[in-house]
Each structure stands twice: as C-alpha cells, then as structure tokens.
Design a protein around this nucleic acid. Sequence first.
DNA 1: CTGTTAGCGCTTTCAC
DNA 2: GTGAAAGCGCTAACAG
Lengths: 338, 338
Amino acid sequence: MVTIKDVAKAANVSPSTVSRVISGNNRISDTTRVKVLSVMKELDYQPNHAARTLVTKQSNTVGIIQKSENKETRQNPFIIDVLAGIYKSCKAQGYATISTTSEQYENIELEVSHMISYHAVDGFILLYSKENDMIEQLLAQHNMPYVVVGNPLLDQQVIHIDNNNVEAAEQLTRYLVSIGHTNFLFLAECGNYEVVKDRIKGFSNILKQQKQTALIEYFDMNYQSIKSYFHHLIIHNALPSVIITSDTMLNHILLSVLYELQLHVPTDIQTATFNDSYLTEFAAPPQTAVDIHPDLLGEVAGDSIIQLMRREHIINFNKVIPTEIIKRVSTQLIKREQ
Amino acid sequence: MVTIKDVAKAANVSPSTVSRVISGNNRISDTTRVKVLSVMKELDYQPNHAARTLVTKQSNTVGIIQKSENKETRQNPFIIDVLAGIYKSCKAQGYATISTTSEQYENIELEVSHMISYHAVDGFILLYSKENDMIEQLLAQHNMPYVVVGNPLLDQQVIHIDNNNVEAAEQLTRYLVSIGHTNFLFLAECGNYEVVKDRIKGFSNILKQQKQTALIEYFDMNYQSIKSYFHHLIIHNALPSVIITSDTMLNHILLSVLYELQLHVPTDIQTATFNDSYLTEFAAPPQTAVDIHPDLLGEVAGDSIIQLMRREHIINFNKVIPTEIIKRVSTQLIKREQ
DNA sequence: CTGTTAGCGCTTTCAC
DNA sequence: GTGAAAGCGCTAACAG
C-alpha cells in the first residue's frame, strides 16, 4: 500500500505538503504541486479513507434510510429510481452511499445511532415521510444533517424534495374531466400517507369545481378485497367510468382484478394512476400515468444533502420536482364495437 | 464523543482491556468484563469505525456491484429482493453495505479500485454474471474476496450463488406438458445471459424427450417488436398453446401485447414465466411462475462473502438455491365458453 | 489476566 | 510556501 509518506519521499517534500496538494490548498507553489501530482499518479496513490475520516471526522458518506415493512413497498419501482438518482449525484461529488433496510423499526433506529456515533456517515437521506418519527428526532438531536424525500410534516426548516402532488392530481383529474368523464373513483392506499392525502386533495378540488362528489375508497395491497369491492359495484350497476389509483402497485393489482372480472380497459372502464414506470408503460393495457420523475427526486436529494453537509447556505428548503401526465390507451376514447 | 479511554478511566482499567472486552477476547476475568460492559452501556460508548478500520485494515463493509445499463434491468423486482437478502444477512453479522451503480462501465471499474485501495470495503458481491469481466479480474488481481450471484463462467473456485436453472426449466416444461400442452414457444431476453441459456437448455431437454421441436425466439425489451411478431403468428394461424418467458419483465411486456391483440389468457393462449414476484402474482391474469427465491439468494450471498472475508474454510463453492413452481390461472385449464 | 507502548495514515497547528 | 510534530481512536505486540 502506498501512503502519503511514500509520495512525499518520492517527491522530495514533506507529507504535509502532499496533504495540502490533495486538499487543494492554494498556498503552494505551482512547481511542487505539479511534481507531487505527477508522483501521485505514478505511484497510483489512493488516500486512505479511514485515516482521513479519523482525523477530519468526516466520512464523505451518506446514509440512506428506507422504511420497508413489506415487499410491496420495497419493490415499488419508484424507490429504485430514486436510489439510482441518489447514487448518481453522490458519486459525482465523491460521496459513497450506505443503505439499509429493516423489517423492524427499532432495529433501524439502533442502526442509525450506530452510524452517527461511528462517524461512519455525515448525513442522511430519508426515503419516507409518514409522520414525524423517532429517527427524524434522533437525527435532529444529534445535529445530523438530513433531507427528506417526500412531504415534511412539521419542520419547514428541513430540506424536503417532493412533487407538488396536489397540483399533479388536479392536472390529472382535469384531464380526465376534459375527455368526458363524469363518474370518478379514487382508489387510495391506506396507511395515512402524506402523498396519498395530497393526491386526494387535488382530485377533490377539481371535482368540487365540477360540483361532483368525490368517491374515494381506501384499500390495502390486497387482491381479494379489491375484487369483492368491484364485484359489488357490478352487481349494483354502480361502476365508475374511470378509476384513479394513488400508486403504481395499486394500479397493478386493480388491472389484475379488472381482467378477472372481464372488464375491458379502456372500453368498459378507464384507468389512470400516479407514478409512471415500465410497469405502467407495459401494463395491460398501457396506463395513463403521472410521471413524478423519481430519478430527479433522487438526484436533487443527493445534491441537497451534500450541500447541507458542506454547511453551504441553503436558500430554498422546499425543492419541488415537476410532474407530467403521460397519456396512454387506458384513457383513450374508443367507440364500443357492440 | 466518548472514546475507549473514557470508558477505561471510568472502569478503572486500561484502554487495551476495554478493547479486549469489545473484541470478545477470552483472556479476561468475568468481573472486569462485567464492569467494563456496564460502563460502556452507561456512557453509551460506540466504537469509532474509522479508527478501528485504520489499524485493523478491515472495514467490516461489503461492496455491492450492480451492472445497470438500462432501466428495465435495474427495476427488475428480482434485484431488489436480492438486495434485501444481502442487507439482512450482512446486518445480522455486523457488516455494512455500500452500493453503487454506474451507467458507464469504466466508471464502476474506477470506483471499485478506489474502494479497494481505500480499505473502504473488505469484499464484494457481484450481482451479475454475463461474461468474465474486467471487474472480476481486478478483484482477483487485488486478492479481494468476492462472490457472484449467478452463473460462474470460468473459475470454479469462485463462490457463486445460483439456482439450478436447467432443472427449474425442466420442471416447468414438464408441468406444462403434463397439463396437455404440445405447442410451445420460449420467449428469451437477448443479450447472451447465462441464466437465459440455462433456462433454454432445460426447456429444450424436455421437448427433446417429447420428440418435439423447441421454438425459441429472442427479443429485446421492446413492445413493438414483440407485438409485430405475434401479429405475424396470428395471421399465419401459428400461435403456440403456451408461451414461456425467460424473465418477469419480458412476461410483463408479453401480457401487454396479448391484451392489445385481444388474446385472452388462459383461454386463448397460456403463459408461464421465471422469477415470481408481486408482478406475476398480480398480473393480468396472475402468472404461473418459477419462484427462484431471490431473497434467499441474497442472504446466502451475504453469508458467503462474510465467510470468505473471515478467511473461513470454504467447502462448497457452488451454492444452489431451490426453486419452486407457483401455479396460477395463466396455465389453468378452462373450458371455452363458446 | 492486565497495562504500557507504539503506530495505523492522515490532517493540522505552529514554526520558520 | 514548506516542514516538524502532535494526535485523531483504536489495536496489537510485548511485558509482567
């Protein structure tokens, strides 16, 4: 292993000079800088991460905290794109990423406090925002920088990266109204999520404008309960003309149910959902969906936490990522053949 | 920050004694051990990761390398479950996980060599095995422990965690034969993947036994090309009775195509695929699928790399994870209504 | 069984 | 603009 001393010796300077070159210190002559740099390259010198962390107490690593009680949440394509975005921006700025998941909440809490006192991590990205929780309090109390991907519940001084879900829902609903729908159903994932609340809010806003009542039903990610609900609707001849789902996963299950009940999309009934991905793009049939740009959410989250860790001045705590509606056959007007 | 010296002072022992207690050294009296332990808890002492890494040259961290050129691969639910399995086993044994992805291959190579010389990582898990590649060579050349999730191409002395894909494909094909199918189509993801080759092999084996010819078609993850292929089959009245796809993603696209072409599953045509997940479970319609237990793959990968890093003796380099067929409506015998 | 000591590789005063 | 020296928190000989 080649150390800073080896480089110093080979370049005929002291270790501290080499260190200064590495850290970009400007009080150094061009001649020595060039010499040291070339020796570094020649010897293929790589600074020792642990040694640097020990003395600076900065690990140049960000921790990613996920809440993933169940498979459905974890496998949601949304989260993977966010992660990819985070990786991208962190790597570009020389930061590593440590990820974990826990099935039990206490475990992850324990782990977070470990990471903090280890000096293993300089800051955190939280990939959820359900309600103000222990972990967030823990971080605040240790004065640990963190950003939240999602809706910040209490503290407006916490950087949060989010879409404007109310507006996105308004746009989507408005579009569905514009193509002639009058009978709406909103299928929401239950669990008191802020995103879901916002999307419902936007949906309701537009329906209120239209003087329509907003039909909203809450479901777990459960095939059977959704199926029996629709069975019930069919029997009572109470099917809506269009169904909005609060998330891709719910949409996926819904389509499976509709298939079994032999309700054809878009001729018998139409569908639209939030969170565009390959899942919606290649669904049966392809779904009209709101693209929330999860990769961008991740990138901005990465950039923001790094800004914060570097103690740069933050102007805007509320980073809003744009959304757009992708129109597909699931809401296409088609003349019935019969 | 509370250090090992603080603990030592408070417990009236030397730092090295505390260190010994932490590392579970047995040459220590029960009395001191108990005392030190209680002081540690009282002061909420957390060992400093960087300091320990610096002196032991072991970071207790494993690096996870993914190849993720495109979105489809990355979002494959398979990989997420594998990751969850890895996290689980690593955490259980006190190891952290650093993950990265790169869109460009050179970048990831650079990063790997950084991680190695940083002493930031003690071992690697490779989440791919396409062909023997630069990264694997790099690791071998640095004498870095690593395991591969997937098929090991050259070196049989490398630990690899995999399913028996040949056998799994044989089982699935045998099952499809048993329910009366005689006209098979295998839709394979192109790209020269070892998994795909194995699955095709198993498929072909059984069809050979049945004295049938195996129809195999290779496709990119491309909706249009698959659609026009099936369009062609319809026109020539050459539809198979069942379609096996080499992977969930391909299956997902296939179902979308069949939906558009108004081919109903399972009445008009039947389908089955590899890699069970929520995607297949809640597909339209739910798919018969081979569960390859990705979470187990991940867990075993984690356990294996830790074994390797601890220089424990390895007996079995070929860890085979069992598979099982989940039968669902996509291959259900249904009397045609007409 | 326990303490003393040296040192891991780096940064950072403090001199000059 | 550069060097010498101290020390980050820990472990690992080496004594005893």
